[in-house]
């Protein structure tokens, strides 16, 4: 187990290093320098600015500085908003995104499981078809389109929910629903197929033969085992929620990290783009690692150290 985690950590660090390095060099070759917008700076001032941000050093020194700073969790200043550092932006925006993301994950998991279980229990009946049509629709409609539809019909036309902003719980319902729609559909499909597989196992037949009721069999025997593939989906789920938040926060005017990120892209605020990308990558890689470890703990059939799954 320790060996496995060590190996995975090594890969994670390699991937992260690749991301940090790539962001660093990408931003250097990106068109325009950070002060292009300041129109015609006197050379002395530009030299001072460069010195202030360490841009007068050779590239390898800058690269080394950047690596060290990232390792110390310091993403540097924002080039566009002089008084704000990237860390400030993350500290201010991430809690908002986190609440929204958590809500979306809860919705996705809860409704996805319910839909999937109903579909499997009523296999090939109308409940199954309805659930699967909902699932295919959820997968096909991109989250930002779901968001605009929800906003237009439920908020603007019917006025059931507030249109935008992030103040009360009611403000979070529509964005969380929009974020959850695609992952919910994936979870529903996963749960259904894994439930169907589990339900055909011998131990379910044994449970039936013992005279257990359908409810007990489903809850005690089937769902527990059917949940395993759903756990593996938690990694991609986090990724989906995270990237989904870029657009959802933009649509609903939520001051989270996602909307800061999109603004920084429009502004070509390179340090923010770099910092937030690295920050997101760390979260993603860490959550995928956590999910894999959790999976190994939940399912004793999987030997992590051997690297062979299932057999």
């Amino acid at each position: 187990m320790a060996k496995y985690i060590g190996k995975r950590l090594l890969y994670m660090i390699l991937s992260l290093w690749l991301i940090v390095t790539a962001t660093f060099f990408f931003m250097r070759i990106a068109p325009g320098n950070p002060f292009t917008s300041e129109k015609q700076l006197p050379p002395e001032i530009e030299a001072n600015l460069n010195a202030h941000y360490g841009l007068d050093k050779p590239w390898y020194a800058q690269y080394g500085d950047y690596l060290l700073k990232v390792a110390k969790w310091d993403f540097g200043p924002s080039f566009k908003y002089k008084s704000q550092s990237v860390n400030d932006l993350i500290n201010e925006g991430f809690p908002v995104s986190f609440i929204l993301g958590l809500e979306a994950i809860l919705i996705a998991v809860a409704f996805g499981l319910i839909l999937g279980i109903i579909a499997a229990l009523k296999h090939n009946r109308w409940q199954d078809y309805t659930a699967m049509i909902i699932a295919v629709a959820g997968i096909s409609v991109p989250s930002f389109i779901m968001a605009t539809f929800l906003q237009y019909f439920l908020a603007i036309k019917l006025g059931v929910f507030p249109v935008a902003r992030f103040e009360t719980f009611m403000h979070t319902v529509l964005p969380a629903l929009a974020l959850a729609s695609t992952p919910m559909a994936f979870i529903a499909r996963l749960t259904r197929s894994s439930m169907l597989e589990v339900m055909s196992n011998d131990y379910i037949k044994t449970a039936k033969a013992k005279g257990l009721s359908q409810g007990v069999i489903t809850v005690k025997h089937a769902i527990r085992n059917a949940l395993l593939p759903v756990v593996t989906y938690m990694g991609p789920l986090t990724a989906g929620i995270l990237t989904g938040s870029f657009v959802i926060e933009k649509i609903f005017g939520i001051p989270g990290l996602g909307s800061h990120f999109v603004t920084s892209i429009t502004n070509r605020d390179y340090t923010v783009i770099m910092g937030v990308t690295v920050f997101y990558s760390i979260i993603l890689l860490a959550s995928i690692l956590l999910v894999d470890i959790a999976y190994g703990i939940i399912d004793p059939r999987i030997k992590l150290a051997g690297g062979k799954k299932g057999e």
Partner: peptide
């Protein structure tokens, strides 16, 4: 391991 959409954006 590099998150797909982030890399594409970058």
């Amino acid at each position: 391991g590099v998150p797909y959409l982030l890399l594409v954006i970058l």
